[in-house]
Design a protein around this nucleic acid. Structure first.
Lengths: 220, 220
DNA sequence: CGTACTCTCAAACGTACGTTTGATTCAAAC
DNA sequence: GTTTGAATCAAACGTACGTTTGAGAGTACG
């Protein structure tokens, strides 16, 4: 072996497992993709998953962590630029939230697959996974909810979280399907998604602005 | 098979299985909910599923058929009222498509659960299930696509199907989450969903009207 | 009564799953 | 040269799955 300066190369066992798992989870779901499929696709031994990650659940978490760390950093960076400003519109906050995810779905090397994994996570209401995401990235949601609350003072905190969850799920699903369609597209695909993202944002803004529904039973 | 007047009552074995399967598929997915869970919840013997339905896949199909027959009949009835009319708007066709589903999510007796099952079906790209839905209800999609095409003459047939799929998936997901949230709501929930549906429709209309993307130049 | 038929039941079938084990490899450290 | 420890491997573990079986209960009808 030509002892290169990079100890953990892109083609290390761990990385190959993560890549294969990401692709197979996107296609077959977390329960539907078996470790035997994953290790066969990654061309590693079956036991490698439990050796390097400990369990299938931990592997799933690592698939998320690898992408979400950067995704949410970008979200917070974008949010930081508009936080507290007077002229901030609802659409600006939504843009800070979904634009990094849209960019991710455009990257090579599994980004598009990961967006589909994200959509899976929303569809499956896996409690373990929910807990992991809440523990590790809940502060991001909280910061966005706070900023949304600033622009929507008439909505209760709880109501804002509900709507954010619905909006995020619908957006994620739409983005995931963009990723599938991407294969058949040509150069104009980028423009299509750019324009579609604008529509998604305006849709989400309309849903969030919706004044009706009361979550406090006493106040009627 | 003597046609007894009340042979298949609401509490028959078949109906109890269908109800339990619907609820468990909504919560745990098709792969995640086992026949042992289903039969235990329905309080029937494990073998009853294979006796009455033949297999788990056939049971899944029957869960869909029980609801989709009426759902799509209502969709076609609503579409028939506006087909070919000059003053038809995109929003009218979308209303004909998603309003029956929204009504279904409001019904008692598992309708809300079924909408979540529908969302599952969209998230999982199960080929067997896709085939079944396409074979049995593809004509509905085709009729709607034809009417959409009439109002969107600049879009290729294929492009219309893509966008319909994305839009339907996002709408279904949103409606499914409405179903989950429903529990915590009071009387105003109906108004909320009514208003939210209007936003969903306008969002979908905007996405469908989007003129960009060219699928035509390259033949592939 | 006997026959026929539908439905239910406990038990077992074979398969696939996630996980664990113990041996083996191999390069670096001593 | 020996030791060490990380990494890989084939094989097996116990469990849960969908499905099948064959016996039996219940009902209808001559």
């Amino acid at each position: 072996m030509t002892s290169a300066p990079y100890a953990s190369r892109e083609h290390s066992t761990k990385e190959r497992i993560l890549g294969a798992a990401e692709a197979l989870f996107a296609t077959h779901g977390f329960a539907g993709a078996s470790l035997r499929q994953v290790t066969a696709a990654a061309r590693v031994n079956l036991a490698a998953v439990n050796y390097h990650f400990g369990s299938k659940d931990k592997l799933i978490e690592e698939v998320f962590r690898r992408r979400l760390d950067e995704l949410n950093s970008r979200r917070l960076a974008a949010l930081g630029k508009i936080t507290g400003q007077d002229e901030t519109q609802l659409e600006d906050i939504l843009d800070a939230y979904i634009r990094p995810a849209l960019d991710l779905s455009r990257t090579d090397g599994g980004g598009a697959a990961f967006v589909r994994v994200l959509a899976r996570a929303y569809a499956e209401h896996n409690e373990t996974l929910r807990r992991f995401l809440s523990d590790n990235y809940g502060h991001v949601l909280r910061q966005f909810a706070a900023e949304f609350g600033r622009l929507l003072p008439s909505l209760a905190k709880e109501e804002i979280y509900w709507r954010l969850d619905i909006v995020t799920g619908a957006l994620t699903y739409a983005m995931a399907d963009f990723g599938i369609i991407q294969r058949k597209s040509d150069v104009a695909e980028r423009d299509h998604r750019e324009a579609a993202a604008d529509h998604l944002i305006s849709f989400a803004a309309a849903g969030l602005r919706n004044p009706s529904v009361s979550t406090s039973p006493a106040t009627r």
